[in-house]
Design a protein around this nucleic acid. Structure first.
Length: 728
DNA sequence: AGGGACGGTCTTTTT
DNA sequence: GACCGTCCCT
């Protein structure tokens, strides 16, 4: 293959990046500049031009989807060397290393399981209430787990954990127990996957040497989102041969809250002083209008490396700004507008995305899509693997794989109900403790010498029946493919009858489980451990079905790395984006701004910024001001919805014959007298003085929003509110 | 032991 | 408005 083939279609800057010397390289690049493309071509270039053997290359990404995509493209570029490059998420790659090294070097075995967030909570809750005798209202599992996670991301084990306040003292004690219990369960949490590998490499130079020698080229995607442990891993692997290639964009760093550390950029620079930095500023994705708008939002963030983003797509349609009356109208506007864009053949349905700050916002959107009879792809919300029935079934498989997994055992020992109640479980737990064995160990003992146990005949029979069943499955777990093992479990436990109570929900649950059976069947002869590992490490975006030509609904966080012809950013309101929880922290506020920036730059041609005048929060209707980020977009780049221009040439397409059901403010047919105008000062007998924010028809009344000096924002109906206008 | 009714809390964002 | 934990009844 000639160099021209590998470099084909790349611009000057990109070629420079792809063919950079094999020392440390950092590619800093704006959105849509082909970062991932550069990474892919770099791999192809190393193999075809530099003669690097594909299996000596390791490329780390943040989602499996990104890894798959990369694999596909590398496969295309190197027709004869497919798939042998090690590509995966940090977590999945570490899970693999651990599986290989656990028996020799770690307190867990190769059959370890990965605890997800719910498992972690169950474990820490038990520690707080049982071991430490504390009130879990005061010491909430999530707060403690958050501290533990931060520590692990910085490679601080329970022994090195330095308490800085009283709460930390509790955290330290909980952390110690937590780690002991994980090990007793033969389990690791997400952070352990990384921490164990880094600590192992640090303590066993021989092991590290083996991996360094195998993987002599390290590539990292989305470098700005690496945490302390991930950086340490990269450094360990690369510090000797120094062939490291990172791409990233600090303006797209949106994972600080889960440990992403922006200091890793300066660490990289100081650990690799000969770092070769390439800047990519050309954007291949968005129109200049979108880029200009996005830049005016991100430019307000302090301390950034200024980047001049320029597009090869001049101009483009204006950005549409729309205020909806509430979240239902917001969703309706989105659905209607998508229908119009599609009808006008401006976009394919699958090239449209609706993005929001919180998962809860997907509900109203889903409702609108369902009512309109339009298909959609949902990322997140009630994630498939978080559903109760799926977790139950997977708990069975986990227990079969690893009988020490007490969290799974507790989950299913009486699911479906088989007469093992609280009393019996208490007794079992105490009995196991007395014999210094795991719960499963105690159950096995019960099987061997039933009369040694303290149980009544009835409980004993139930327990024996349960453990015999699990033992039976364990006996065949090596010989049966995952799919048929799962079917055995379902048959013998009559689990489907248990969840399917005949209701619609019950049928849904049954179908979910059947779906899992299908997924499992695809694993064929692959070991159970592989199945469980992938189930634990899949992310929401990984499941985004490319095959379906329908709009995607997703959070701004899961939108990173994706692009669409048309993007709707909804819920652009103070309190939502930026989120309430970031108001008092400038660092977090900067991250909210980057989130907005990421969302805007996902769009190729059409960008819609949408906010709702009021929104139901926890069932209550609340008023919101529109997001401060909207104010940062230059007015000349914005057009209101009713002037919507379709087509780059500016051809105007009339909005559909069907009258769009938009907010009352949109229906501007008959102008009615509005006694109150925004900005006007008013007085209310009870709330005092304030400023009118908004005034609009609501039914046949007027709805006035007033920001009162004392009591804050209130929404009043003109016929009830006794408002007096004040002068100037 | 299990099921149903009730009330309090909760939501950022995810591997 | 959803989920979970708690209480009470069968």
């Amino acid at each position: 293959m000639s160099p021209a083939a590998v470099l084909q279609g790349l611009n000057e800057q990109q070629i420079q990046a792809v063919t950079a010397p094999e020392g440390p390289v950092l590619v800093l690049a704006g959105p849509g500049s082909g970062k991932t493309r550069v990474l892919t071509h770099r791999i192809a270039w190393l193999v075809s031009e530099r003669g690097v053997l594909p299996w000596r290359i390791m490329a780390m990404t943040f989602t499996n989807k990104a890894a798959r995509e990369m694999g596909r493209r590398v496969g295309e570029l190197l027709a004869d060397n497919p798939r042998s490059v090690l590509m995966g998420t940090f977590h999945s790659i570490c899970a693999r290393f651990l599986r290989r090294e656990a028996d020799r070097h770690l307190p867990i075995t190769r059959d370890y399981v990965i605890f997800d967030t719910a498992d972690q909570r169950a474990l820490i809750r038990a520690i707080i209430t049982e071991d430490l005798n504390l009130d879990e209202k005061r010491y909430t599992p999530d707060r403690i787990l958050g501290r533990i996670s931060t520590a692990k991301n910085e490679l601080i084990g329970p022994a090195q954990f330095q308490p800085r306040d009283y709460f930390d003292e509790i955290v330290k004690r909980a952390y110690e127990r937590y780690q002991e219990r994980l090990i007793a369960n033969n389990a690791v949490d997400f952070d352990d996957l990384l921490m164990y590998v880094v600590l192992l490499f640090a303590s066993e130079p021989g092991v590290l040497e083996r991996y360094r020698n195998t993987y002599d080229h390290i590539l990292v995607d989305e470098f700005q989102d690496t945490n302390g442990a991930q950086y340490a891993l990269v450094k360990q692997l690369a510090e000797k041969h120094r062939r490291i290639f990172c791409v990233g964009d600090e303006d797209q760093s949106i994972y600080r809250w889960r440990g992403a550390d922006y200091r890793n950029l300066s660490r990289l620079r100081s650990d690799f002083p000969d770092l070769h930095t390439v800047l990519l500023e050309q954007n291949y994705r968005s129109t200049q209008t979108i880029l200009d708008a996005a830049r005016s939002v991100i430019d307000k963030n302090p301390h950034r490396t200024p980047k001049r983003l320029f597009s090869e797509h001049e101009g483009g349609p204006k950005i549409i700004l729309h205020e909806a009356h509430n979240e239902q109208y917001e969703a309706q506007f989105v659905v209607d507008t998508i229908a119009q864009l599609v009808a006008a053949q401006e976009v394919e349905p699958g090239e449209v995305a609706v993005m929001y700050r919180t998962n809860a916002q997907s509900r109203a959107l889903e409702d609108a899509f369902v009512r309109a009879g339009l298909p959609y792809r949902l990322v997140g919300a009630t994630r498939f693997y978080n559903r109760r029935e799926i977790k139950d079934v997977i708990a069975y498989l986990r227990l079969i794989h690893n009988p020490d997994d007490t969290v799974s055992l507790m989950r299913i020992i009486n699911t479906p109900p088989r007469g093992i109640g609280e009393k019996t479980l208490d007794m079992l737990q105490r009995w196991a403790e007395r014999q210094r064995t795991s719960l499963y160990g105690a159950l096995v003992r019960l099987l061997e010498e039933p009369e040694a146990s303290p149980f009544s005949a009835r409980s004993r029979r139930a327990l024996v029946e349960f453990v015999s069943a699990v033992d039976g499955w364990r006996a065949v777990r090596e010989t049966q493919p995952v799919g048929s093992l799962l079917r055995m479990v379902l048959d013998e436990t009559r689990y489907l009858d248990y969840i399917d109570d005949g209701s619609e929900q019950g049928r849904d649950r049954r179908e979910n489980v059947m779906e899992l059976v299908n997924v499992a069947a695809e694993y064929e002869e692959l070991p159970l451990s592989t199945f469980l590992e992938e189930v634990a490490l899949v992310s929401d975006v990984d499941n985004l079905a490319d095959s379906m030509n329908a709009p995607s609904l997703l959070t701004l966080h899961s939108a990173k790395g994706l692009e669409f012809d048309a993007v709707f950013l909804v819920g652009l309101e103070e309190g939502l984006l930026p989120h309430q929880r970031s108001f008092d922290d400038p660092e977090q506020m900067a991250e909210e701004r980057r989130l907005m920036y990421v969302g805007m730059t996902r769009a190729r041609r059409y960008l819609f910024l949408i906010y709702a005048f009021r929104r139901a929060v926890w069932g209550e209707s609340a008023l919101n001001l529109r997001s401060r980020f909207i104010e940062d977009v230059p007015a000349d780049l914005i057009a209101p919805a009713h002037t919507m221009l379709l087509g780059v040439e500016g051809s105007e397409i009339r909005r559909s014959a069907r009258p769009p059901r938009l907010s009352p403010a949109q229906v501007s047919g008959k102008p009615s007298p509005k006694p109150f105008k925004a900005g006007q000062r008013v007085r209310h007998p009870k709330f005092g003085q304030g400023i009118v924010i908004d005034c609009r028809e609501s039914g046949d009344d007027l709805e006035i929003s007033v920001a009162f000096e004392e009591t804050g924002l209130k929404r009043l109906l003109a016929s009830f509110a006794n408002l007096t206008p004040l002068e100037g």
